[in-house]
């Protein structure tokens, strides 16, 4: 695959239709024209990061777009989660830690909100990938974090 991303629709890897040309006809509203030399159609796109929705022929199609790095992180996380061993939770984007809802020693359930990072005026919640106990808290409210910065350790 020449594309930089792994693409999933309904949890299944999909090969992108790379032979179609994409042109943005309304970039403000993210409307694109797809054409393959004999046919064309209009589609709307929404999303950020790895989560996108494409509206094509009236139907909304959710597409997970993962770079190889995100895929490896996700694989490592799910492997660690499956093993039950200690995992490190790191920032996936640069921003400001606005709140932390756990501390060293906190018991958390899978999906619990651990802390919130503000980036681009958007509040991004960091959630526990699995149940466990927080063994180390590396950041506090008001701290700026870079991509990849250690936030918490969970065991």
């Amino acid at each position: 695959m020449t594309a930089a991303f792994e693409l999933c629709v309904d949890d299944e890897v999909v090969e992108p239709a790379e032979d179609w040309h994409v042109a943005w006809v309304d970039s403000e509203h993210r409307i694109a024209r797809l054409s393959n030399g004999s046919r064309s159609l209009l589609a709307a796109v929404e999303g950020t990061g790895g989560d996108w929705v494409v509206t094509l022929r009236g139907r909304r199609i959710e597409v997970a777009v993962r770079s190889w790095r995100e895929r490896m992180l996700a694989d490592a996380e799910s492997a660690a989660a499956a093993r039950g061993g200690p995992i490190e939770i790191r920032a996936t984007l640069p921003g400001l830690v606005v709140s932390v809802s756990c501390d060293a020693g906190s018991e958390v359930a899978a999906g619990d909100s651990l802390l919130t990072i503000e980036a681009m005026k958007m509040q991004n919640e960091v959630r526990a990938p699995r149940a466990g106990r927080v063994t180390h808290r590396a950041v506090g409210p008001g701290e700026a974090v870079a991509t990849g910065a250690l936030l918490l350790r969970l065991e």
Binding site: L7, C8, V9, D10, R30, V63
Partner: peptide, 21 residues
């Protein structure tokens, strides 16, 4: 069911949109 061609087109457009973004 979702047409596989449409899934493939959507995937391509989403990856292009992410790159453009």
């Amino acid at each position: 069911q979702l047409d596989p061609t449409d899934a493939s087109l959507a995937a391509w457009l989403a990856s292009e949109a992410r790159q453009a973004a």
